[in-house]
Structures are given as structure tokens and as C-alpha cells.
């Protein structure tokens, strides 16, 4: 390892720091009161969440299940296309010790995968295969997650299905399945919510770009960082920000100054208060703002890297493994 840090690197880092500071100081300079004022004026309204009492909670849910849905990807050490990935999705119910697993193994080396990739590329040579591959993977995972959720919805008729991540993802990755799913959900009166830990939208800067051009390009999570009090939310006006049949809100559900996002179906938004309070109630005060149920599902759906390696070692012929999936890097002596 090199211990001598060259001067050029140091000075480049200094420059980066300066640039970032300049960019964000304008937002930081926004006085909290003022900021809130024009956010409320232009784009939505603030409100307060409430922790539910045990009694209210029980009555609200009425003995029905809450389903948490999450997925995971584990892959062997090589790089595209010499690797193998295990995709898993889990829908887990709070009642009845019920869960649905969906699993797929993704092997980019296989002919069918290569063809699928080329189909996506549509002749555009400039798109890196690795980018397309990750899209394929994510599409597959979204499909697994949605399938798990759909099965759980049919079999459990739950009160609420809680996805880890934005609902928009399913809408764009697996639109047909999503449409079927939404139809079913609305018919059966099953609530659906997406809990977004890392909010990737820039709705605020977008909506305010006329009045506040210098905010351009800033993410909502950056702008809202520290702007909401614990237990406070910001509801985005559906007129002012169009998001198809989805609606989004931002919540500060714990002592962490970072906000989280909630995606709901427009048709179910009348239940926003119940859903957001439920999520707030299920979120540990000192956590990172995610309801505990999703945390549980998240930790359950993952397999460890060593487990994956073990499985690969067991079920794949050693020759094949060496030839196709052993990264050159592992043999390198440092």
C-alpha cells in the first residue's frame, strides 16, 4: 500500500470541499422560518404525526396482518459477466408466522441473459453492459418483490403492505404486474405504502426553481435535512407536483435529522394520516427513521457473503467455478 499521499491529490480534495461548500451554503443560509414559509406556500403543507396508543393501534389494524416487503442481492466476487448473483425477495407478515420467499439466480454468462441485455441496448453501443446488467438485475428483483407481495396480499388479505423503497420503482420496472397488483389492492381495500429511506427526489428545488434558481439540482433530502422537527411531516400538494397515480410525503420519524419519504397510491391517500401515524409509531425513537418491521424484514432477507460462497462451493463443480467465477484478483498476491 502506498503511504505517500501526493500533493496533487491533497489539493484536489481541498477544491472539492470548497465547491460543495459554496453550493450548499446557499441552502444553509436559508433561514428555517423563511424556508418553511415558502415551502408551505408553494408546494405543500406541514403537519404533525402522532404516536398511537396500543389501543388505537390494535383497533386500527383490527387483527389483520401488516406485510413488510424487501429484497436483497448477493453476488460472487467477479465482475460482469463473470459472476453469479442470488436475488431474494421476502414478504413477511406480522401475524401467523407467515412469509413468502421468492428467489432467482442471475447468471449474466447464460445465453438468454446476453440476448436480453442486447435487447435492452437496442443497438446503442455507447451504453455500458455493466449498466444494462444492473438494470436487468434490479428489474428481476422488483419483479420478485412484487410477486411476493402479491401472493401475500392474496393469501393474507392484510391491512397494509409496506415496501422498502419507492413504489415508483415497481411502476417503472414491472409496469404490467404493478397495474394488476394495484387493481387488486384497491378492490380488496389493502393499503400500500413505500417507505423510502434514501429519498432521491428533487421535488422542492424543481417546484421552486423559478423563485429560487440557486437551489437547482438539490435533492429534497438535502434541503429538508434538519428542517423538520421530530414527528413532523411535509405533505406535497398533488396539484403542484404531478406524480402520476402516486403521492409522496416527507416525514421526520425519529431523532435523526434526516427525513424519510412515504409513497402512497393516490386512491388511498385519504388514509395518509392513519398510515403515517402507524409508521411513526412503529419507528424507534433513536433509530434511523425506518419502521422496525422493515428493519426486521431487511435483516432477514439478506444472506451473508460467506453463506453465498459456501453455497456456490457446494453446488457448483469446482472446475466450473474456477474457470467462470473465480476473480483473477483473488489469486493476486499483494
Amino acid at each position: 500500500m502506498s503511504f505517500i499521499i501526493n500533493e496533487d491529490l491533497k489539493s484536489q480534495l481541498r477544491t472539492v470541499n470548497l465547491q460543495l461548500k459554496r453550493m450548499y451554503s446557499s441552502a444553509a443560509a436559508l433561514d428555517k422560518e423563511k424556508f418553511r414559509h415558502f415551502v408551505a406556500e408553494e408546494i405543500g403543507k406541514f403537519g404533525r404525526l402522532e404516536k398511537m396508543s396500543s389501543k388505537t393501534l390494535k383497533e386500527l389494524v383490527g387483527g389483520k396482518a401488516i406485510i413488510g416487503v424487501d429484497g436483497s442481492i448477493n453476488q460472487t466476487a467477479g465482475s460482469y459477466p463473470h459472476y453469479l448473483a442470488v436475488l431474494q425477495a421476502l414478504a413477511k407478515s406480522t401475524v401467523g408466522d407467515y412469509q413468502v420467499w421468492k428467489t432467482a439466480v442471475h447468471v449474466p454468462l447464460l445465453k438468454a441473459e446476453r440476448e436480453r441485455l442486447e435487447g435492452l441496448r437496442a443497438g446503442n453501443k455507447d451504453i455500458a453492459s455493466i449498466f444494462l446488467d444492473s438494470k436487468v438485475k434490479d428489474t428481476k428483483l422488483a419483479a420478485l418483490e412484487l410477486a411476493a407481495a402479491f401472493q401475500a396480499a392474496r393469501e393474507m388479505k392484510p391491512f397494509l403492505i409496506m415496501f422498502d423503497g419507492p413504489l415508483r420503482r415497481y411502476q417503472t420496472r414491472v409496469p404490467e404486474e404493478w397495474t394488476d397488483f394495484v387493481q387488486y389492492i384497491l378492490r380488496e381495500n389493502i393499503l400500500v405504502v413505500g417507505v423510502i429511506e434514501e429519498v432521491g427526489t428533487y421535488l422542492i428545488s424543481g417546484a421552486l426553481k423559478e423563485s429560487y434558481p440557486y437551489l437547482e439540482g438539490q435533492y429534497d433530502r438535502e434541503l429538508l435535512f434538519g428542517q423538520l422537527d421530530p414527528g413532523e411531516y411535509l405533505e406535497i400538494d398533488e396539484e403542484k407536483v404531478q406524480r402520476g397515480d402516486l403521492r409522496i410525503c416527507f416525514l421526520r420519524t425519529s431523532s435523526d435529522p434526516q427525513i424519510i419519504g412515504l409513497d402512497m397510491l393516490k386512491g388511498q391517500f385519504s388514509c395518509f394520516e392513519a398510515v403515517s401515524n402507524l409508521i411513526y409509531t412503529l419507528t424507534p425513537q433513536d433509530g434511523r427513521g425506518i419502521p422496525i418491521w422493515l428493519d426486521l424484514v431487511d435483516s432477514e432477507v439478506r444472506i451473508t457473503q460467506s453463506m453465498l460462497d459456501l453455497l456456490v462451493d457446494t453446488y457448483l463443480d469446482p472446475e466450473l467455478k474456477r474457470k467462470l467465477f473465480a476473480p483473477k484478483r483473488e489469486e493476486r498476491i499483494y
Binding site: 396500543s54 393501534l57 389494524v61 396482518a65 406480522t94 401475524v95 409509531t281 412503529l282 422496525i292 418491521w293
Partner: peptide, 8 residues
């Protein structure tokens, strides 16, 4: 406790 209320 909330978790318990919703059955888990």
C-alpha cells in the same frame, strides 16, 4: 409493545 399490538 406496538409490534406486539399488531400481532408480532
Amino acid at each position: 409493545e406496538s409490534l406486539r399490538q399488531i400481532g408480532y
